[in-house]
């Protein structure tokens, strides 16, 4: 009976890789093998039979792609403005979990991503799910994606044939669709470190807001990241769950950025704030589904855009 079962259900083939090379080799050897990261999306599909893996390469034990580090740090070198701040880039390993993104040290660098991570699922999900997995799944509702979109993140890929980097907008090609090729592994993302450490500048670094119909453990109905790019003095916004892929409302960004005081918090012109919200809302192309309506989603990203802007730049 068990032999029949094994025959019917295919042989098991799970490789727990310890190094990237090992993982890439295994993927190259077996074109049917699928990459397993934190499992929080993958296993739901397996449990509900939307995915029937024939071979798996588990990468969560690959240390090379754990954690984060600062790269190319330079005092003010990337800055276009007057801030004598610290800029550079931040490398985030694909295996970094949402819980790890919520640690204080990381929050100090990229608070918007911390905020996004804290809205993901439950503590258990945040302990297992990874940023690499969020990218790989590429759900329109992926919570870190608006932040990564706003930051023009580079997605780092590796295969047995070598490495490549793709802009997020090139990597996510549709709802749950990516440019990831067979044999490739997401190794991490690289984002600009955008904030000054200059204590005199009290403008916020960025915000992430998410609407769901429950106060915790809820899929995004609409999400918004707003990043104050001090290095280029531009407000960068990423929208989630309001289109097939993360959206950048570039017109709104370009319109509002020069109207803001980049040195200190100030009283914002309510008309400017309102206009900004409307422009962001117009950039969305949401749909009706079982979680909400298109009209509400558009409305919600407008409201969140205004609130995020005021939180970041406004004074009382």
């Amino acid at each position: 009976m068990l032999a029949e079962l094994a025959g019917a259900l295919r042989a098991m083939n799970v490789k727990v890789a310890r190094t990237l090379d090992e993982a890439c080799e295994r993927l190259a050897e077996n074109p049917e093998a699928e990459v397993l990261a934190g499992g929080t999306d993958f296993m739901v599909e397996v449990n509900y039979r939307h995915r029937s893996p024939k071979a798996v390469v588990a990468i969560s034990a690959v240390r090379e792609i754990a954690g984060w580090r600062l790269e190319n740090e330079s005092g003010g070198a990337g800055g276009m403005g007057a801030d004598a701040g610290r800029y550079g880039t931040l490398w985030i390993g694909a295996n970094m979990t949402y819980t790890e993104m919520a640690t204080p040290a990381f929050e100090g660098l990229l608070p918007s991503l911390t905020q996004a991570a804290r809205t993901v699922g439950s503590p258990q999900i945040r302990n297992a799910g990874t940023i690499g997995g969020n990218l790989g799944t590429a759900s329109p509702a992926g919570d870190t994606l608006p932040v990564l979109a706003a930051l023009d993140a580079e997605v780092l890929l590796r295969s047995a044939d070598g490495s490549r980097e793709l802009a997020l907008s090139d990597f996510i090609t549709g709802p749950k669709q990516t440019a990831l090729q067979q044999g490739e592994i997401i190794t991490g993302v690289r984002v600009p470190l955008v904030a000054p450490t200059d204590a005199s500048n009290d403008i916020g670094r960025g915000e992430f807001l998410k609407v769901g119909t429950r106060n915790a453990m809820v899929i995004s109905v609409a999400g918004l990241a707003l990043i104050a790019r001090h290095d280029i003095q531009r407000v960068c916004v990423g929208l989630g769950s309001v289109a097939a892929v993360p959206v950048r409302p570039t017109e709104a960004e370009e319109w509002i950025s020069p109207r803001l005081d980049w040195q200190q918090r100030s009283l914002l012109d309510p008309v400017d704030v309102e206009t900004f919200g409307e422009m962001v809302a117009q950039a969305a192309s949401p749909i009706d589904d079982h979680r909400s309506t298109a009209v509400y989603r558009r409305h919600a990203v407008g409201v969140m855009a205004k609130r995020a802007l005021v939180r970041t730049f406004g004074s009382n």
Partner: peptide, 14 residues
Amino acid sequence: VLVCSCLVLAASAM
């Protein structure tokens, strides 16, 4: 680390 065991592929927990 607290996780949901339903989302862990058993063989990957070796």
